[in-house]
Amino acid sequence: MGRKDKERSDHLHDFLVEEILAGGDDDDIDAAEIAEFRAVVASGKVALARRRLQMAKEAVLKDKQHRSNVTEVDKERARKRLSTIKTSANDDGASITLAARFGKDDMNDDVDGLLEDLAELERDRKDD
């Protein structure tokens, strides 16, 4: 801040302090003005909430479009990777298995979801 700016800032500060100290509490507050102020604030909150909702919807749509870019080739590559992961042993000598459903549900949907997730992770890793 230059010397002139500093002087101006000091003068403004002094003026504001004097105005605050000289002011009295004898000004009546109009209830209508308070109600109008509260309405404006409420309107602003609603507008902000709507904008945040719109941004969230756009983010969800973008995420859905990004996820739909997984191709069958990506899934096949992920299937091979998953097969490698399942058959290879870890440090303790135990291999990775999928949770059993005990015949209650079809695991194909779970495997397809897992393959899509794995393909997305591989794609995202290449993007980075």
Rank of each mutant, 00 (worst) to 15 (best):
R3K: 10
L61E: 12
Q65T: 05
D91S: 07
H13A: 05
Q65W: 08
T97W: 05
E58C: 07
S68C: 11
L21W: 04
G23I: 04
T87R: 09
E76N: 05
F37W: 11
L53E: 09
S43R: 09
L12Q: 09
E18D: 15
K86L: 07
N69D: 10
N90C: 07
L48T: 05
D10F: 07
F15I: 12
N108T: 12
D92W: 13
D105W: 03
D63R: 06
G44Y: 10
A39M: 01
V73L: 13
R3T: 05
I20M: 15
H11N: 15
V40C: 03
D127T: 12
K75Y: 02
A56Y: 15
A47D: 13
D74Q: 01
D91L: 07
R51N: 07
E36N: 09
G2T: 09
A119G: 02
R79M: 03
I29N: 00
K45T: 05
I34Q: 12
D91I: 04
F37E: 11
A119S: 04
L16T: 03
L16K: 06
D112Y: 08
T71M: 02
V70L: 14
L48I: 05
R77D: 04
D25A: 11
A78H: 00
E122A: 03
Q65A: 07
K80Q: 10
M55A: 11
D92K: 10
A47P: 03
I85K: 00
T71V: 12
G24W: 00
K45H: 10
A78I: 00
